[in-house]
Design a protein around this nucleic acid. Sequence first.
DNA 1: CTGTCGGCGCTCTGCCGACAA
DNA 2: TTGTCGGCAGAGCGCCGACAG
Lengths: 723, 723
Amino acid sequence: MAGLIDLNSTTEEEEETPSSGSSSNSFGSNALISGSVCLELWNACAGPLISLPKKGSVVVYLPQGHLEQVSDFPSSAYDLPAHLFCRVVDVKLHAETGSDEVYAQVSLVPESEEFEHKLGEGETDADGEEDAEASEKSTTPHMFCKTLTASDTSTHGGFSVPRRAAEDCFPPLDYSQQRPSQELVAKDLHGLEWRFRHIYRGQPRRHLLTTGWSAFVNKKKLVSGDAVLFLRGEDGELRLGVRRAAQVKASATYPPPCSQHLNYNTITEVVDAISMKTGFNVYYNPRASSSEFIIPFRKFLRSLGYSFCAGMRFKMRFETEDAAERRYTGLVTGTSELDPLRWPGSKWKCLVVRWDDIDTSKQHGRVSPWEIEPSGSVSSSSGLMASGLKRSRMGLSAEKQEFPVPNGVGTSDFGESLRFQKVLQGQEISGFDTPFGSIGGQNHPSESRRVFHGSIGSRGHDLRNSLVNSEIASKGIGFGESFRFQKVLQGQEIFPSPPYGRAPATTEAREYGCPGIFDGFQVPNFRNGWSTMMQSNNTPVHRSASVQVSSPSSVLMFQQAMNPVAEFNSVYNGHNQEEQRILQRTPYVSESDGRKQTPSSFCDRNFSREDYGGMNSFNQHGTSRSPHSSQSALRGGQDMVTSCKSSCRLFGFSLSEETHVPNKVDNSTPITSTLNPGASLFPNVEPRFHSKPPLMSAAVGIPCTKEWAFDWRGERMESCLQG
Amino acid sequence: MAGLIDLNSTTEEEEETPSSGSSSNSFGSNALISGSVCLELWNACAGPLISLPKKGSVVVYLPQGHLEQVSDFPSSAYDLPAHLFCRVVDVKLHAETGSDEVYAQVSLVPESEEFEHKLGEGETDADGEEDAEASEKSTTPHMFCKTLTASDTSTHGGFSVPRRAAEDCFPPLDYSQQRPSQELVAKDLHGLEWRFRHIYRGQPRRHLLTTGWSAFVNKKKLVSGDAVLFLRGEDGELRLGVRRAAQVKASATYPPPCSQHLNYNTITEVVDAISMKTGFNVYYNPRASSSEFIIPFRKFLRSLGYSFCAGMRFKMRFETEDAAERRYTGLVTGTSELDPLRWPGSKWKCLVVRWDDIDTSKQHGRVSPWEIEPSGSVSSSSGLMASGLKRSRMGLSAEKQEFPVPNGVGTSDFGESLRFQKVLQGQEISGFDTPFGSIGGQNHPSESRRVFHGSIGSRGHDLRNSLVNSEIASKGIGFGESFRFQKVLQGQEIFPSPPYGRAPATTEAREYGCPGIFDGFQVPNFRNGWSTMMQSNNTPVHRSASVQVSSPSSVLMFQQAMNPVAEFNSVYNGHNQEEQRILQRTPYVSESDGRKQTPSSFCDRNFSREDYGGMNSFNQHGTSRSPHSSQSALRGGQDMVTSCKSSCRLFGFSLSEETHVPNKVDNSTPITSTLNPGASLFPNVEPRFHSKPPLMSAAVGIPCTKEWAFDWRGERMESCLQG
DNA sequence: CTGTCGGCGCTCTGCCGACAA
DNA sequence: TTGTCGGCAGAGCGCCGACAG
């Protein structure tokens, strides 16, 4: 209890250590390049189900699926193979001008036949190679996503900001004023700045974006049902994205010819490239396509490992209309090639299925093997992660878990989304009587009910092992940009790495600790891995971070690893005293009281007056002044960065109370092969990861209100296991 | 004097022959398909210098030039030829969503080597073949273009419509009311309808577009300096386009990726197509590209015929920032290949030039041979049109001619723009003291000073000869869609084919008579060729039409040829009595008085109450009624169509006294090889092209005011000469 | 906590003639 | 003839708290 710090409350300690933020400033500098925010934003906008192939990795490209999406492409008989092994040489993220619709330009180079042989020989090449600079990039500490209501999009008023979202993502307000307000500046996907007046007013008080909001709505052509996404970078920079409602995609609101032609001409590129062994570009619009046609190589192989047959039950993820994720189950009724004449041997949508609870008219009756996951017992020979990967307990929400994951499976289906923090919308965490019942509490044990904690301690050793092993394995391998992405759960909060965590309520939280991970069988880059760690309340934590999942809100607070290897080593060589001090002095506390907040609790140094002091000129009523909290404002964020680093060093694994990370103990641990899909590739690592249920699974079990959708699942474990 | 009819005045004769319009109704029916308006609009928006390859024709495609415009295209070594002979299998006109920027999709198919042999054997296949339906399409009778002023684009008010523009392009108002008004409905390039309230009010009275205008300005993002373009089709349908100021093109106001990617991927298409002999698409944005990379075959050959050498003087057209056309002169300082390694033998920008009077920093120091025109004496021996086609006199503006064209040259450089009526902006015709000084005059000889007339009458026989000869030559050849386009001179009026012309003031005006002509060496299609002819005032003219260029205004009134060959034949077989009668009965008279206009003078039958009777519901004041002038409204347009036909038969050539076009002289000219770039590829043809100066040069000599830009030159002669 | 609404002030659009170039 | 302006009226944007779920 004493060790717990309520994230929703302000601690004296916080306010007394304003200087800690400045002292930790050096950690946050140049660890984040400006472009990386866009990457996170891109993924947040793309939606929860979207993944991108990792640069340098090997994927399976399915021209059939590509062609299927190019509606106007002539049916000329290009002699294309059904499956094409390609190496991803580049992934560029774009957003269409005007619509802000995200799309990716994936540059592929066909792989030679010897590629398979290399695989058989255990070479790790297939997992890709990334440059070190990518590790400099990092992830997103604070973001939230909200579906716009009619009032939000009406010209009559502004945008109602969910309280926790405002408190976590926006600079603090001076709540001593009657109507505190400030100007927010946020950059969209194109780097354009949008300015909003953020005011806290009304009875009861609430956060609103007023001036500037309607201009944004008009320019972006937002309608009720669309979602906006605010994201605060480590540098305090605010970003905002748009995720449009599903039905908008089908309409012709925005000029389609661009994307169409892009795809159209891409096909001809492919034909060339195959014969000439040159690269080609594929433009992938994650919001427009129902199925992916670029599949990570190992995911593809894994799907082939399943022996799908008629009568087999499966489950598959869908994105619902409100941009949330949902899983549906069904029955495989048969297997047949979709177009045997033109695409002989193709696995594209080769499974004929029947859905359980959704009318089949809306869903096609065919799926591809890699899209689904067997839900029955599977005699899977590809047991890379199966061995020992058991979901031990479901935590608080076990009984409400909507998508129970059977033992022995449950990891493979998460492969593609593992690398991202999710921004899911409207999800609540069950098990709490009143999500915001406790107000202003500080370190009260009762607060622990409102926040999920990873169980800690007892698994520290395992984590350490995996950490070190992985760190070795990543040498010279690098990682892809997509590692850093996060999925944002709308309405769900995740507070990573508070120096003073709360009592562990569940162990599922550790799943948050593995966001910056390669997908599928990719080798993770640990320097870039974003992770959070569990830790005891008020206990100075070394080499650890914590993840806390709190009750219903639209806020996610993430942290990301951005420290270079040198820092990592220094920390684990005992040079982290100052960092520890900072960690102790700057607990991150979220406030959940409905009354006045202590602004400092949500400030980090990069988000303090230095950045926002000049914004109040925008205040029409003259009531907006920067709160005189520059001191306290320095603490939170920057220190979170610091703690984030430590969590990175631990690869995002939650540390339990017993966590004692040996220094470089396992640096010499040899990793023979990362490409051998075997159950015991990392016998000492994998089981440990799955001996704990993923933290996010708890969130899944949370009962959803009308507004909050299910969407969060623990889908990052697989990546963690494959270091 | 008695024979002159002031186009700016209303004649009794006009008002007394309202029935003539109805009698000529049959000529205008089903001659215009709805899509053709878009074609004209497209060309009007594209600008004066823009031309399109003719469907079915053979062009020279220069990948080098194409690549040059694809900025982000990798410099991968595609093995493309410098020059690729292609047949234009399709030309599709598009307009970009959002920006309304016009672009064309040109579908090309590489030509085989035997193409050369066919040419050598005198086959006319290279000139293309078109379907008969294209001849059904026709041109635009009434259009105007106005550069938007600050007031026009301000939110403070509406759009001030130039008086003549309103009277000519809009349905007539009931001027008996105090504030007559009506609703106008105009379709833009995408077919979207825009509604405007058209009111005639103020003191002094003026035409305004009020309600609805600002919405259009906002949606199209129009700014001061942009130009709008109203176009009234034969069916009375109003179209409007946008031509943005030149500087807008360079900015990133509108999403460029689409066009860029289109071009990008097109390159790969080309590589395929060359090897596979399949077609490919080229997307050509006439407003974005400085030089064309699709050159009509004959134009290309002709340019090779010039023996460009260092020291040779030349002239070249440019589009000025206000969308007008201007010609600059320069000196060829050398010839060298731009990129001998990658594009050996390429003629693309192979001429190194130095400009005379513009700073070279703004203009590149290299041009392609087909872009320029020698201005020195050329040893050209081809006399197709040279015989008799001399610039007899420069008329009123001879001494002010800005770009004097020496005899013997001056036709070849006009080849590409010949097919369009130009919409040029702000051009005045010199020699008039006050453009609108004369008010309400009818058939006053003094009015002749304000209008150019072709010399007439005495050349009827010559015209007939050339007509017949050309008609024979055109058998089975057809014509391209692009024939029908017109260039619109902003601020300049062109009233084609008034049955009662005025006394010839100069012969330069004859150049207006050749708009609907094939370019380069293409065989003209006489059924579709649009032309006007000069004729004496009040003198019944057979087999001729007239062009009258009146003083500053924004109105162009065009006519187009749409009569099938059968009609053509009947006319020239002596069955044209009725047509003559119509021509005599329906002189087109423009009004220049500043007082109340007789509405009927600007109406043709297609624009009468039948089309606009139901539009007054939008009238807020309820004062708008259609004038009871349906009879007189029938005359102008329809009859102009008739006379236009006759001018088409004359290929739009102005008749000069010495003009004697040889019959089929050059049809049998053997062409040994089209691929041999040699000065005498067509020894018997080319010289003729240059033996006559272009007729349009006279217009060039008109002094420009600040508002009115130079732009009109006689650029249709070349095509005419090559039938 | 937050979505929606009534109230209402105020900006800005947009129509008008006056005036001048 | 037409570009620009002052005057002015009205629409609707957008800020506010009051409710209620």
